[in-house]
Write a protein that binds this DNA or RNA. Structure first.
Length: 418
DNA sequence: TCTGGGGTCCTAGGACCC
DNA sequence: TCTGGGGTCCTAGGACCC
């Protein structure tokens, strides 16, 4: 048996924990740059605010209904997430942290799984204030289905989907769009063949599913029939790619300003690599204009370069990124986003050297980065940075409704008045 | 006026090798 | 007139997830 724990409206719930007066109020959380809606409380969902829509399109609904608006605060959400996950790990024998607000747990051998799940739920709610739902079933995909009904139908937020008759009934009620693995493209394709529910989908011929939706679709179908295709991965493997990208807070034309952002992103990628103890074999840079603009054709510049020797050295990655930027930058366009991707990672202690590799200066640089990383991790991001990242940071993003970092910054601790 | 960020996996087709 | 067969590796693009 597999259990899936999923935090309800996670970001919105995090904001509520430290602002209990908002308990019954509609809340939305915005993406970076205050651009799109990325989380909604149930009250906001009822008002018809859809996931992912740009804020300006729902501005009227927000204003007319006193919806509380928050800029994204990842320091807060990340910290709350690790608290929830650590509580779940204490209780569950085997756990895979699947995303910031979800975890799969192996319930094999658990005698009364509903009882265990209910206990988890009350421990998490009591210790963190975050409401969660837990779905239990034979496979990961079915546990997702169970979780859907845990949120929808049950008062206590725990739902086990185990009896054959019950599974068939659930799949008949579940729109195919809600399946884990069906996105907008597959949905349109399936609908065009008259497939509307999860039950319709499992009736389909396997070869047909394989042809239309690749092996991923077939695995999903088998999982829905109770045949496990995905195991619990309790040991997270090293990331294969690491990306840092941001929209600009303002429209940007000049190479100078873009270069500052690229250097900052490249340095951040290098730092992330060092945290993971990895080195990357390639560096890519992206630079794009506004895809929604009507006055200017969309331009998406993307280029990669392979490194002679995999590295996590900020300066080497920055240099590669600068060269790439020079080759995709076009004069005269108005840009809205830039980013750096490093990838094809290898463990830092297994880097394949070549004949021309020289140790000279490497040890010093390693020590330098160790100190810089330590200072930045304990005293705040970019306390020490490369000069090329720029001081003014004109390209920085908008965050007009940012909540305090209640749990990760001393000056932001909640004050209780007696 | 105003549209996020960070990942994974799969496939087809081309390059290349013997 | 007539130009193989089989394999691997790499990459770009597409689809999905939260």
């Amino acid at each position: 048996m597999i259990a899936l724990a999923d935090c309800n409206n996670f970001y919105a719930s995090c904001e509520r924990v430290f602002n209990p007066g908002l308990k019954t109020k509609p809340i939305v959380v915005l993406s970076n740059n205050d651009g799109c809606i990325i989380a909604r409380s149930n009250e906001a969902k009822v008002l018809g605010i859809k996931m992912g829509v740009p804020v300006f399109q729902v501005r009227d609904i927000i204003d007319n209904n006193n919806v509380y608006v928050f800029s994204t605060n990842f320091a807060l959400y990340g910290d709350m997430s690790s608290r929830v996950m650590s509580l779940l790990s204490d209780i569950s024998p085997e756990i895979e942290i699947y995303s910031i607000d979800e975890a799969f747990m192996n319930f094999t051998g658990v005698k009364d799984s509903v009882h265990l799940a209910s206990r988890m739920k009350s421990v998490v709610t009591k210790s963190t204030g975050i409401p969660i739902s837990i779905g239990i079933a034979a496979t990961k995909t079915l546990s997702k289905v169970a979780n859907y009904f845990a949120k929808k139908q049950t008062a206590n937020g725990v739902y086990a989907l185990t009896e054959q008759q019950q599974i068939v009934q659930a799949l008949k009620e579940l729109p195919v769009s809600k399946l884990w693995g069906v996105g907008s493209r597959h949905l349109r394709m399936l609908n065009s063949y008259g497939i509307n529910t999860a039950y319709d989908f499992i009736q389909l011929n396997e070869e047909w599913v394989l042809e239309k939706m690749t092996i991923m679709g077939l695995r999903m179908q088998r999982e829905l029939k109770g045949d496990p295709c995905f195991g619990i991965d309790a040991y997270p493997s090293r990331k294969k790619n690491i990306r840092t990208s941001r929209s600009f807070g303002v429209k940007v034309k000049s190479l100078q300003t873009i270069q500052e952002s690229i250097i900052a992103h490249a340095a951040r990628c290098a730092e992330k690599l060092r945290i993971e103890n990895s080195c990357a074999r390639y560096v890519s840079v992206i630079l794009r204009t506004n895809p929604f603009s009507k006055s200017q054709d969309y331009y998406y510049g993307y280029k990669s370069i392979n490194l002679e020797i995999p590295t996590n050295d900020s300066m080497e990655i920055v240099n590669a990124a600068k060269i790439l930027l020079g080759s995709i930058y076009k004069e005269g366009l108005i840009y809205t986003k830039s980013g750096v991707i490093v990838g094809d990672t290898v463990p830092a202690d297994q880097v394949q050297l070549n004949l021309f590799y020289s140790e000279q200066g490497k040890e010093k640089r390693k020590n330098l980065y160790k100190s810089v990383d330590f200072i930045n991790q304990t005293m705040g991001r970019d306390k020490i940075q490369l000069l090329g990242q720029g001081i003014a940071k004109k390209w920085k993003l908008k965050q007009e409704n940012l909540s305090p970092c209640y749990t990760t910054r001393w000056t932001d601790l909640l004050r209780v008045h007696c």
